[in-house]
Measured scan of single mutants.
Amino acid sequence: GTVHVGDKTYHFPTPDAAKKFAQEIAKKLNLQVTVKNGTWQVH
């Protein structure tokens, strides 16, 4: 899975790992999470 946070991109071996990371970052930074075609965006 891929997660975009601002101008950074993180790659994870599984979709679940990407989802978990995106949700944790969003919670920590009080941001929104959207997913499109398996790519997570934190914004």
Rank of each mutant, 00 (worst) to 15 (best):
D16T: 09
T34L: 06
G38S: 06
A17P: 01
W40Y: 14
F12N: 00
W40T: 03
F12P: 00
V33Y: 06
V33E: 02
F21P: 00
Q41C: 14
L31G: 12
N30P: 01
H4F: 12
L29F: 15
L29M: 08
P15G: 09
E24F: 15
Y10M: 03
K8A: 08
E24W: 15
Q23I: 15
H43W: 12
L31M: 15
Q32F: 09
N37C: 07
A26G: 07
Y10H: 03
A17R: 07
T9M: 09
I25N: 02
N30I: 03
H4P: 00
V5R: 02
K36I: 15
D7S: 14
P13I: 07
K27L: 12
N30F: 05
I25T: 07
D7R: 15
D16G: 11
L29A: 05
V42Y: 02
K19L: 10
W40A: 03
K27I: 09
Y10L: 04
W40G: 02
V35R: 08
H43K: 08
N37L: 05
Q32D: 07
T2D: 06
K8G: 04
T34H: 06
T14N: 10
K27W: 08
E24Y: 15
L29S: 05
G38I: 03
Q32S: 12
K20G: 05
V33K: 02
H11W: 13
L29Q: 04
F21R: 01
A18D: 00
H43F: 14
E24A: 14
E24N: 11
Y10T: 01
K28Q: 10
P13W: 06
I25P: 00
T39A: 15
F21L: 01
A17C: 07
V35L: 15
V33W: 06
E24S: 12
H4K: 14
A22P: 00
D16P: 04
N30T: 04
Q32Y: 07
H43A: 11
T14W: 04
V33T: 05
E24T: 12
D16W: 09
V33G: 01
F12D: 00
Q32I: 14
K19S: 11
V35F: 15
K19M: 14
K8Y: 09
K19Q: 13
T34K: 05
H4A: 07
A22Q: 00
I25F: 06
Q23T: 13
Y10V: 03
Q32L: 11
H43G: 15
G38R: 05
V42W: 03
H11L: 09
K36P: 01
K8E: 07
D7L: 13
T2R: 10
T9F: 11
Y10A: 01
E24D: 12
T9A: 08
G38K: 05
G1M: 10
W40E: 02
L31Y: 07
H11V: 09
W40P: 02
N30V: 04
V42K: 02
V5K: 01
K28A: 11
T34I: 08
G1C: 14
N37S: 05
A18K: 00
V3N: 00
D16E: 14
G6A: 06
K36D: 11
K20P: 00
Q23Y: 15
V3F: 01
Q23K: 08
K20M: 11
A22V: 04
Q23P: 00
K27R: 13
K8T: 08
K20C: 10
T34M: 06
A18I: 03
K20V: 10
K20R: 12
L29N: 06
K8H: 10
P15W: 15
F21M: 03
G1F: 15
D16S: 11
G6Y: 13
L29H: 11
Q32N: 09
T9V: 14
D16N: 10
W40V: 05
A22L: 02
E24L: 13
P13F: 07
P15T: 11
Y10S: 00
H4R: 14
Q41Y: 15
G6S: 05
P13M: 09
A17I: 07
H4S: 08
N37P: 03
G6E: 06
T14M: 04
A17T: 06
K27N: 09
V3S: 01
P13V: 08
A17G: 07
K27S: 10
K20Q: 12
H4N: 10
H11I: 09
A22N: 00
D7Q: 13
I25V: 10
T2C: 10
Q23C: 13
G6V: 05
P15I: 10
Q41V: 15
K36Q: 12
K28D: 06
F21Q: 00
A22W: 02
V35D: 07
V3K: 00
K27M: 11
